[in-house]
Amino acid sequence: MEEYALIMRHEDGQKIASPEQMQIWMKQTMDWIGSIAAQNKFVSGTGLSFAGAKVVRPHHVVTDGPFGEIKETIGGFIIVKADSVEEAAEFAKGCPVLQGEGNSMEVRKIAKNDGAH
């Protein structure tokens, strides 16, 4: 069994939704993670705050972050166990950030002793 990162790319929810709507999304996210954990496939994960982010470039150039297009910003990730990238993608389908048009989930295998990392 391999480990995959499911990376959430989406708009900052706080800018477009009410606290009540945020609450609902939070619950849905927890249910999504709970469902994966109930299958004993959850490894770890965290959300990332949109506030107080910086982007650092060569020559000590620091600008306010986060990085990337509005809807392609990384909002968090979880790491899951899966037999294949297809199974991992199946888990990603359930993530509530996909309710937002333009948002996406990126599925990446965790590199472990593959010689390239």
Binding site: K27, M30, D31, I33, G34, A37, A38, Q39, N40, F42
Partner: peptide, 28 residues
Amino acid sequence: WENILQLYNHLLQLEYSPIAALNRTYAL
């Protein structure tokens, strides 16, 4: 039941057990 569901979601992330998985699904 909403509280119980969220607690099981959290518990399963800390430590998986079949009984917690089943109880979570009942709460769901």
